[in-house]
């Protein structure tokens, strides 16, 4: 089977970033669970920090730069998306929202999405439910039931009910949505020559 494609959108502002770290842990968990089912996955990580200027220019010019366009296409064409943002003022970051503002309204329709966020304290965990989930609902994405929030104190925890457990559960939910789905990989698209299409329309003699 053609490998599935996974687009990982991460909006951390620093390097290294805990947002990227969470994105990597989720990606690893999803890849492992898919591998257990015998599925291969091609991962594309989209670091929004590197696209900040391109996104800003898109506001001014109204169209994306080639670099931004390639990443928007990667998200649009992916079989599933993992989206991770730092939480600022109880919501997604401006950079995260700006990327989805320039993404086409139909780009995520029906697409499985895992949402996750990082924050300094657990106090803003619900931002995933009141800010991220509604935005992806507007985009008609299929968001997995478990959203993963990692606060500073979560990183050390190894207990099954802690961060590791939530990552495994969310990854399992995304894997389940993908299992049995054929890859939308463009390599499998076959173009039927025009003569054949025409011949198919002609009445059989």
């Amino acid at each position: 089977m053609t490998p599935l494609t996974l687009a990982v959108v991460t909006a951390g502002l620093t390097q290294p970033s805990s947002t990227r770290l969470l994105a990597d842990r989720l990606t690893e968990a999803v890849s492992r669970q898919l591998a257990d089912e015998g599925r291969q996955v091609d991962v594309r990580v989209i670091e929004l920090r590197e696209l900040a200027v391109d996104i800003a220019n898109n506001f001014v010019t109204g169209f994306p730069s080639p670099a931004l366009d390639a990443e928007l296409e990667a998200v649009t064409g992916a079989d599933a998306v993992i989206a991770v943002t730092p939480i600022f003022t109880a919501s997604y970051s401006g950079l995260f929202k700006s990327f989805f503002d320039v993404l086409d309204n139909a780009a995520l329709t029906g697409k499985p999405v895992l949402v996750a966020a990082t924050g300094g304290t657990a106090r803003h965990s619900l931002a995933l439910e009141h800010a991220l989930r509604p935005m992806f609902a507007y985009l008609r994405a299929v968001v997995v039931p478990t959203a993963v929030y990692a606060s500073s104190e979560d990183w050390g925890s190894t207990d099954a009910e802690g961060l590791s457990g939530r990552i495994a559960r969310a990854a399992g939910e995304l894997t389940e949505l993908l299992s049995g789905r054929p890859s939308t990989g463009r390599a499998v698209d076959e173009v039927l020559p025009f003569e054949q299409q025409l011949a198919a329309l002609l009445p059989k003699s």
């Binding site: 003022t89 919501s91 950079l95 929202k97 700006s98 989805f100 503002d101 509604p134 935005m135």
Partner: peptide
């Protein structure tokens, strides 16, 4: 209103203000 919320541009300024 973009994608059923405030614009990312507005939010990017709010993110840079003191907590």
């Amino acid at each position: 209103v973009f994608k059923a919320s405030y614009s990312g541009l507005l939010k990017s300024l709010l993110d840079l203000l003191p907590q």
